[in-house]
Design a protein around this nucleic acid. Structure first.
Lengths: 132, 132
DNA sequence: CTAGTTGCAAAGAGTTTGCATGGCG
DNA sequence: CGCCATGCAAACTCTTTGCAACTAG
């Protein structure tokens, strides 16, 4: 699909993802970010770019809610993915980093040959606000 | 929305979910299952039932892919001290005990005031057999 | 020039909602 | 009988696809 031509659109999507490394971005948010920076990329193109970048392993896709989120994955931090918590009350999604989960991930790999999918795994519980 | 009248549709959806306890079912699959059993429930009704049952904590919703999956959650507290792993390929459910997860549970409690629900949390990934 | 990429609009898939009808209690 | 639940169809959201125009190399 994408043979790697260098285009303005590719640059813009990548710029947005790198500028928001620490966040999840939906396709819509990327679309708006680009617009706010005085440029334009069509939504279809954004989806096409995201699909390609995901296949290349440059970004990671998370399908935790209504719309998918994408996040830049730097090569160095590949193993330091984060995990998802969802509140069963308010349905809000939180993301956390945890040594315990990182250890669990490798424990599962070595003990059971189970390859954990960070993007799909969601831990459920009750968040601070809803505990009351 | 649902005030708890006893209807045939409620029975059918519940029957399907209980008959498929060990799997997760999409709304579409439930729709078909009911049809195959010679009955009929409209899709809109299935979605409404599922939303209600989820709020009641009878079933768990999982939004891991294109369409949401729902699964019956047993009321028994047999899921207290272990966690669930599910293979995204073969759909098989594994039970694990893990110190890391126990530690994570208290870590979440102290750091974020997030109260983890062991019974509902499912980690997804690829199992040994399906890795090939 | 030539083939890959873009943007638009339309199509799809999954889910929700409005409304008239039908059924539970 | 009074409401709630149901079914249908239309609306909605997110995403993908078809296609003509554009553009990088």
């Amino acid at each position: 699909m994408e043979k790697g031509y260098h285009t303005k659109q590719t640059d813009l999507v990548m710029a947005c993802l790198e500028a928001n490394k620490e966040r999840h971005m939906t396709a819509e948010e990327i679309y708006c970010w680009v617009k706010e920076n005085g440029e334009f990329v069509g939504k279809a193109t954004i989806y096409r770019k995201l699909a390609t970048l995901e296949k290349q392993g440059v970004i990671q896709k998370f399908e935790g809610g209504d719309s998918a989120c994408y996040q830049y994955v730097s090569q160095q931090e590949e193993c330091k993915n984060h995990y998802h918590l969802r509140c069963v009350e308010c349905n809000k999604l939180f993301h956390i980093e945890s040594e315990q989960l990182d250890q669990l991930s490798s424990e599962l790999k070595t003990q059971f040959d189970f390859c954990l999918d960070h993007g799909k795994s969601v831990l459920y519980g009750t968040c601070k606000k809803c505990a009351n």
